[in-house]
Design a protein around this nucleic acid. Structure first.
Lengths: 343, 343
DNA sequence: GATACAAGCGCAAAGGTTTGCGTAAAGGGA
DNA sequence: TCCCTTTACGCAAACCTTTGCGCTTGTATC
């Protein structure tokens, strides 16, 4: 009997010889129910450990209490930490989190958003694929009344709530620091610059040179197709092959940096004496690397919290409002032993 | 009008002057609906881009198409990768994944499982908290007809489907390898051994000594309260203070290993010449570490796939059956430059 | 001309909960 | 005794979809 079915409000009603509505009101402590009846209902509810059926409630209220989040990949420190921030924020507001990864596939992203619309999630947080160039699937969600917040990866020209990190500023800080420490031959391993984030880091690198009157030597820039450690290895092998003078490296991220550092060492250069290295992201292992990696820290957890907060604000002020929030968080340079002043 | 509402089967029915049931059957290509009617229905459904309401369907079918997964933390390489495996498996079967983290809090774990029961997820994958000693909340789920698969972390004496990695074997392999390479004074930084996983690694360390007739020197074992890099630092500082002869280190995981390696270097020891180091987990950065870290690889992605597979099998063969699956995956030793034969 | 059969569709229930409104009984005051 | 008010509860709709069963036509058969 109790095998497969949760007890419902109807079961309790039948057993007490009252109507389901009475049971519902009793459970909600409605004034027009007698103390006697309430007592009986509560007792039975307790006995069968009654739990309301959320599906029925959702159908009725048109609210599921679920927030969806779509990230390109879940296995990176960055997104996992964002999710942590989101989780903490939404769960304290009583929401559940539906996490999905698009694996950088645009088709997958469309399908996931579609699923979320069908499930009637209350809101969606998304960090779009690098391949996302059209936004019909975003609009479909909005016109279904589901608010959307974009985080980390910008969609230029698309109007929406956004929470981003100022990659340009982070890169600028890093490169200017390298310049100030006397390094004037700074290589850069850029990520795929079709991606705004990586383009911004490249721009930061370029403008820091410009503002400090250091000529840019294009032969010190490698454009990489990816941004994992393997690409860092390949990229620095190319730099070595070019046989140009260089005394510092600014890598598009930490993973690329440590890939490059292996090649640097294997070619007999010392870090940081011969070559100062600065990464980007401040991954958890960066401080324990040898030598500990100078890098650009991003307020990742805060990024998640803030994105979630904006979504929650939407729920509070029912209006979809034409004003979009646009928040830019500032990264911070963290100096460790992989970089040092040229003496 | 189209502002906030998805079009329903009823809207279409009204507009066509037929009943909702006819529309439903038309959409499902039921034989007893005329081609004419079908055409009209399909046309309208297309026009309004009708999507069935999954909540109503779930309520009807008692199936949500959602699988829940609870992990202690999402920001670790290990669990993030497991989730990837699970995701790939379940999404190809048409299920959606609800991911939650318990933050190693038993209360949180109970609450999450509770939520999942309320949401009527179709099944649950869980890697329990280290503090999970009672299993009523698991039983509650099962008696609600929701199948449960436990992965990675064992709950001794609790009967359930389980997918585990043989930590004992991994540790044994690692330590035996160190012994065979001539290291007979092997330190071990153990994790909190109240946790079965870490206890097993310690046992592997001990038995490898025993089987190879190497005496165990208890002064070379440090029992750590945690398992992040910081604990690795502290633990090796203790070892140094004891001032005992040692020529190798087997750390409970990679994070602890790299923490310890910093201390090793700072004290003037060479890796691997003076001290061979082996970790556990094969985190993504291990191969790029300096020197590249010898470690024990675990089939993490496969772990996720298999766990999910077992859950899916449950759905297929409706029977909850008294036979529980118990799968043990084998880890593999990966030798890199942080360890070397004593010459 | 009556019967059989098929095609094509609608009714209503089921899934669980909430809530506006209606109603019955009980109590009080006149 | 009558009326009004309060107390305590039930009805039914609403949320949306599926499906067994039954109903109405029209056509074919003898």
């Amino acid at each position: 009997m109790q095998k497969n079915r949760q007890t419902t409000i109807i079961d309790i009603a039948k057993q007490l010889g009252v109507s389901p509505s009475t049971v519902s009101r009793a459970l909600h402590n409605h004034p027009s129910i007698s103390a006697e009846t309430k007592k009986n209902v509560l007792a039975l509810a307790e006995k069968y450990s009654y739990q309301p059926n959320l599906l029925a409630l959702s159908l009725l209220n048109k609210r599921t209490g679920i927030i969806g989040i779509v990230v390109p990949e879940i296995t990176s420190y960055f997104f996992a930490t964002v999710i942590s921030g989101v989780q903490d924020m939404v769960s304290s507001a009583g929401y559940k989190l539906l996490i999905c990864q698009s694996n950088e596939s645009f088709e997958e992203e469309k399908k996931l958003l579609q699923d979320m619309a069908l499930l009637r999630v209350d809101g969606v947080l998304i960090s779009p694929t690098f391949r996302t160039k059209t936004f019909d699937h975003f609009d479909r969600l909005k016109s279904a009344g589901i608010p959307l917040v974009i985080f980390d990866r910008d969609c230029p020209h698309y109007k929406a709530d956004k929470v981003l990190v100022d990659s340009y500023d982070g890169a600028y800080q890093a490169v200017e620091y390298l310049i100030k420490t006397g390094r004037h031959n700074i290589a850069h391993i850029a990520g795929p610059i079709a991606f705004p984030t990586f383009k911004q880091r490249l721009d930061g690198y370029l403008n820091a040179h410009y503002d400090n009157n250091i000529p840019i030597r294009s032969e010190l820039i490698v454009y990489s197709d990816g941004f994992s450690s393997d690409y860092g290895v390949d990229a620095f092998v190319q730099l070595i092959a070019r046989n140009k003078k260089l005394d510092a490296l600014f890598a598009v991220n930490d993973a690329v940096a440590i890939g490059a550092m292996r090649v640097i060492r294997e070619n007999g250069y010392r870090i940081p004496e011969d070559i100062s290295v600065v990464g980007f992201d401040d991954e958890s292992y960066a401080q324990y690397y040898f030598p500990p990696l100078s890098t650009v820290w991003q307020p990742v957890y805060e990024l998640g919290m803030l994105s979630a907060k904006i979504l929650l604000d939407h729920f509070a002020s029912k209006e979809l409002g034409e004003r979009f929030r646009y928040e830019i968080l500032k990264p911070e340079l963290v100096i460790r032993e992989s970089s040092i002043s040229l003496s």
